[in-house]
Design a protein around this nucleic acid. Sequence first.
DNA 1: AACACGATTTCG
DNA 2: GAAATCGTGTTT
Length: 172
Amino acid sequence: MSVDRLPADFYMQDVLTVAPALLGKTLVRVLPSGEISRHVISETEAYRGGEDLACHASKGKTPRTSVMFEPGGRLYMYLIYGMYWMLNVVTASEDVPQAVLVRGLRDVSGPGRLTRKLELDGSFNRENLVSSPRIYLAGKAPIPEYTTHPRIGIDYAGETWKNKPWRFVMKS
DNA sequence: AACACGATTTCG
DNA sequence: GAAATCGTGTTT
């Protein structure tokens, strides 16, 4: 356990508050071998509820998206293109479906590559970051400087949503 | 039961 | 520019 593991309250805020606040925080992964891997989060994206057409939950609650309707602090893992697991942190209160996609670490670029490196897969879906012995987030304020950009790979979401500056990149 | 497709990455 | 590769949601 870590003394500065992020508490449940942190994840209960709106996704537009949590997504930039995750920048500079440390992703801690206890591997099956016992080795502890620590990486600083450098890039995130916010997916915000039923209205956001880029958010999987905008199409309603399904077996896959149901975890986003649970209280913040759990992981939402899903497989994309048949080969890459995406790491998402669920935020906000129950029945407010939101999640932050962890898109990059300071020394690992790309959401698909970072889950491979940290050995994260579907078995981590619904994992609770506040109590899990094998993965958690740690760190303290302040939030580092960052820039905002449109989200990647969501052209299907339409003009309104695809242009939202909801990608957050930590300045190196 | 069949089909279409994606919050990506890598190779040519 | 295109393939790889499969779970999920939708349609038949």
